[in-house]
């Protein structure tokens, strides 16, 4: 599915589940890297939104996740692999407003059911591999374009 050429930049990050105080840190770091390589504002915006949503999904639902950022001048690929409950019905989860977040988390202002829909809207390509009881791996691809 993915192109054969290996991405040049490779970064690894770690997300800790249930820790709302540092949620968003990984997307901030990725944002800075993208600014430094001169990705276009639009690319940065789409990636910021999608990574933040994916990061929040991990914080809300999973124990932890490993994040990989691969980037070259053509494509930016972000993979988020978590150890979590998995998604029983991916098609349902793609629907705006569908959420399995607890009441407690919704009261905190999260879990509005826009995570996957926003990711699908922002990324140029998304693949979701999930096994119930084991975890979920989301791979998002974005076409990279230089600053306009």
């Amino acid at each position: 599915m993915h192109g054969p050429s290996p991405a040049k930049l490779l970064y690894h990050f770690h997300i800790v589940g249930q820790d709302f105080t540092i949620a968003g840190e990984v997307s901030s770091k990725i944002r800075r890297i993208l600014q430094q390589i001169g990705a276009s504002p639009d690319t940065i915006r789409r990636i910021s939104v999608a990574t933040y949503e994916a990061e929040m999904n991990v914080v809300i639902h999973a124990d932890e996740a490993d994040v990989t950022l691969e980037a070259d001048a053509g494509i930016i690929r972000i993979t988020i692999a978590d150890h979590g409950p998995g998604i029983p019905d991916v098609e349902k989860a793609k629907q705006p407003g569908f959420s399995t977040a607890s009441e407690e988390i919704r009261e905190m202002g999260f879990g509005a059911g826009m995570g996957l829909p926003n990711i699908l809207r922002c990324a140029d390509d998304v693949s979701i591999d999930t096994v119930v009881g084991e975890g979920t791996r989301i791979t998002m691809e974005f076409l990279n374009s230089p600053e306009a």
Binding site: Q35, Q36, I37, G38, P41, A73, E147
Partner: peptide, 16 residues
């Protein structure tokens, strides 16, 4: 924008 390491993305990535 004044954060990029180079105007050329290939070069920016190498510098990165």
């Amino acid at each position: 924008p004044a954060m990029a390491l180079s105007d050329d993305m290939e070069e920016a990535i190498q510098r990165m």
